[in-house]
């Protein structure tokens, strides 16, 4: 077991280093322009005005932009391991600070969204499985299909339209109180709920057909006991993987949803940075999001093998 975990951890570290390298190389593929953009920000404070050649040369020398990319990357990596991710072109603040201020908001939104998706998705999936091939099942499956296909940015607009503008129940945007998190988390939770419902249904269907459930039925247990005490326990194990799989959707979705609702998280920071070409921030956000994604999946994998002893790492 321990050996398996260590091996997985090794893969995770490899992937994270590879991912940072990839992002670094992609964003620094345009060296001349980067130095130019940086010079505009740092010496002039305005991206629209051209910087002088001396300024550009000074910047590219200071940030080692004239060295080969691989040298730049190694020096960047060693700096970032000490917590120095560079400075925002726009605000001059350290990238790490900018991210850390916003990280709690994103995590809060993500956790609430996951909870919502589980609260909606699991019961829907179980009901659909128990009533397989009935009208209830079809309604659940169709809603799940719609939930997967609905663009989250559109759902957000419709929710704002109905609940904020027409019914005046929730604020349109911003953050702070509980009322601010309702619409963003429903937006993010819906798509995930649909996937959760689908997975719960198919996993439940598989479990219901197993011998031990038939035994329970043969013993004369009530249907409710069978479902709640016997079938559900095993059926819900695969649902845990959904949290890992959907984390990608979630973190991608936060980018859009945070932008719409002006939620002060990493996603909004990233989009703003892209439109302002603030490379250090883009780089920092992407790397943070990726590391979160990889580690959540790692933990999900681990918990999966602990909860289901049939799965082992010594493959």
């Amino acid at each position: 077991m321990l050996k398996g975990i260590l091996k997985r951890l090794g893969i995770v570290l490899f992937v994270v280093v590879g991912a940072t390298a990839l992002v670094f190389f992609m964003l620094h593929y345009i060296p001349g322009e980067t130095a130019e953009v940086m010079a505009r920000y740092i010496f002039i404070g305005n991206i629209e005005i051209d910087a002088s050649n001396e300024d550009v040369a000074l910047i590219s020398q200071y940030y080692e932009l004239d060295k080969p990319l691989i040298v730049q990357y190694v020096s960047w990596l060693s700096k970032s391991l000490q917590g120095d991710l560079g400075m925002s072109y726009k605000t001059g603040q350290p990238v790490l600070d900018e991210i850390m201020i916003r990280l709690p908001a994103t995590i809060k939104l993500a956790v609430v969204s996951v909870l919502i998706s589980l609260i909606i998705g699991i019961p829907l999936g179980i009901v659909a499985a128990i009533r397989q091939n009935t009208i209830v099942d079809y309604i659940c499956s169709t809603s799940a299909a719609i939930g997967v296909s609905i663009p989250n940015f559109w759902l957000a607009l419709i929710l704002i339209l109905v609940f904020s503008l027409y019914l005046n129940l929730t604020p349109v945007m911003g953050s702070g109180g509980v009322e601010h998190i309702i619409l963003p988390s429903i937006t993010l939770g819906t798509g995930m709920a649909a996937v959760t419902a689908r997975l719960t249904r198919s996993s439940m269907l598989e479990v219901i057909r197993q011998d031990y459930v038939r035994t329970a039925r043969g013993k004369g247990l009530s249907e409710k006991t069978i479902i709640v005490r016997h079938a559900m326990k095993n059926a819900l194990i695969p649902v845990i993987t959904i949290i890992g799989l959907e984390m990608g959707h979630l973190l991608g979705g936060t980018v859009i949803v945070e932008t719409i609702f002006a939620w002060p998280g990493i996603g909004k920071l990233l989009i703003d940075a892209i439109s302002q070409r603030d490379l250090p921030i883009i780089q920092g956000c992407v790397i943070f999001i990726t590391i979160m994604y990889v580690f959540v999946n790692f933990i999900v994998d681990l918990s999966y093998s602990i909860l289901d002893p049939r799965i082992r790492y010594e493959r």
Binding site: G248, H249, G252, V255, I256, L270, V286, I289, Y293, V294
Partner: peptide, 8 residues
């Protein structure tokens, strides 16, 4: 590449 959420 799979380490990234795709839209990111």
């Amino acid at each position: 590449l799979l380490a990234f959420p795709s839209i990111i």
